[in-house]
Design a protein around this nucleic acid. Sequence first.
DNA 1: TTGAAAGCGCTAACAA
DNA 2: TTGTTAGCGCTTTCAA
Lengths: 339, 339
Amino acid sequence: MARTPIMKDVAKAAGVSPMTVSRAFSQDSSVSKSTREKIMAVAEQLGYVFDSTASNLRSQKTGFVAVIIPSLNNANFADTVSALSGELANHNLQILLGYTGYNIEEEERLIGQLLRRRPEAIVVTGGRHTAAARRMLENSAIPVVEIWDLPDDPIDHVVGFSNAATMGGLVDHLVAQNYTRLGFIGADADGDTRGADRRNGFLEALGRHQLDISRLISAGPAPISMREGADAMARLLQRFPDTEAVVCVSDLTAFGALTECQRRDIRVPGEIAVAGFGAYDISAFSVPTITTIDAFSFDIGREAGELISSLLRNPEASREQQIRNISPKLVVRQSTFRV
Amino acid sequence: MARTPIMKDVAKAAGVSPMTVSRAFSQDSSVSKSTREKIMAVAEQLGYVFDSTASNLRSQKTGFVAVIIPSLNNANFADTVSALSGELANHNLQILLGYTGYNIEEEERLIGQLLRRRPEAIVVTGGRHTAAARRMLENSAIPVVEIWDLPDDPIDHVVGFSNAATMGGLVDHLVAQNYTRLGFIGADADGDTRGADRRNGFLEALGRHQLDISRLISAGPAPISMREGADAMARLLQRFPDTEAVVCVSDLTAFGALTECQRRDIRVPGEIAVAGFGAYDISAFSVPTITTIDAFSFDIGREAGELISSLLRNPEASREQQIRNISPKLVVRQSTFRV
DNA sequence: TTGAAAGCGCTAACAA
DNA sequence: TTGTTAGCGCTTTCAA
């Protein structure tokens, strides 16, 4: 065969109509067993590969779910995407992934780009978007799921939690342990809106406890990781040497901060306590282990996947907005023990 | 408007033919500036969203590149995909991602699934595939790029390195430092073929140096991470307490192993040396820092992206097989210092 | 620079 | 259970 075979070729070779071949290739269609087997054998023999692009156009269904995350290189989001992907695979849905690099203008661009591909649903990370992005999502006529946040004014469905309130809970725990001089290490204000919410929650909690709110270290533009955590810790120790506990925007940052203390022979805990956020593997294995928040990244993905597949199976129910509030868990570990 | 607007609607509202609208939406087409502006304004006003699915079918171009990796949750592959994605985005190509979970049967299934979407190129991780998978790739009529490995018999193009030879180089370094009783921690034989190659390279190097090859710890099915590294280290210390250095299949495993030593107050280095693979962030920040191999994950993705976009721009050149050999770098750090 | 006609490869809808 | 007809929304091709 000169050109790559199409359905019509398979039909001719199998002595059936193209429609029958189409039915044989769809899961739940009425084709006699013998006909289906014949068709599959012929297709295999011809090296036929089903063409989704034509199917997508005709049926007006692509089987795509667009997913936009800040960065692939973050175990929390990778967990969420893995779980989401696994859940959706059960329903023959495929993820179309985009990374914003913690930039909402890039998010806007990506949303526009991905919607052209006609996804059947779209998942965005966080609740803050440009006006144009929000408009596109609202007009998209497909389910929209915002994850990893609890927006004040959700576009549609939500699977997330309040980063501020969760961080407040961590601060409450530290204060209950009699830590009073608390510092915070996070990214610069813009970019990482969840990080900014965590910082706001930190400040709000200090306010409630009437504690000093000046010990904030900006570790540079998001994403920040171990290096920035270590550098920021060095600055914190220099500027506020009497700090008793430092809360970091993520476990990676916390680990960087912890290692900076170790390099300076500052005992953690003892001289200074360190806490993170996100329940990354590293916080469970470092020595000392690091107190953190488990936001159940995997569950966020799984729930978003369940939500989407149920909405797509039952389009009438889609009109009803769903807010799934994940309850992150405080995981108290060695790095904040009172010694 | 009752239904969602299509190109024809935009054309009518702008007083031009659909073909002119099509031209206005394609980058490099001849439309007068005033016509294009008029069309864009009308499209915006109608809330028109270009439909790629129709475009893809008619033009027989999807702008997709299929990429298959073992796991998202691995910073090395995440780096590769990020770089690849960034490079391809410059050419309006979008990644279609699949995860095998370190399972070549799943890889086969994924390849079949993704090829239906008519990607313009496909990237697979590693050089070992099922016979059916290999056949599908060979018959696919699109560029195939195998990455993160240097297959004996490549399907098409390659951007990778020899895991065995690279690991051999690490062993040579340790032996030159006078370490003679070396252990290895890795996943069970199957699943992670790159890990298996590293173990083979380890054994081959020990053979060359006429050293004991019995100190192999299987840490369970791939992927293995910190927990498995810690557990495996515990077993290694029990079964071969006189081991002088342990080489781990990845930095995460090495970090787990290191922390197990720390929990037991075994000095690293000093009592035992630890090395990893992959140049993850953690190996640069842990205390002690961990000796590792930098396989330039990011470069692998960038080079694969460059290769693909050049092949797609210049289809005649695609016939010429390209093998891009990345040269990983040994990064000597504190964890293997001779003290 | 613009338009008209045809068709990419499937499947919805209807008929048998 | 199988077939026929038409058309999904674009772009190729040819013409003006």
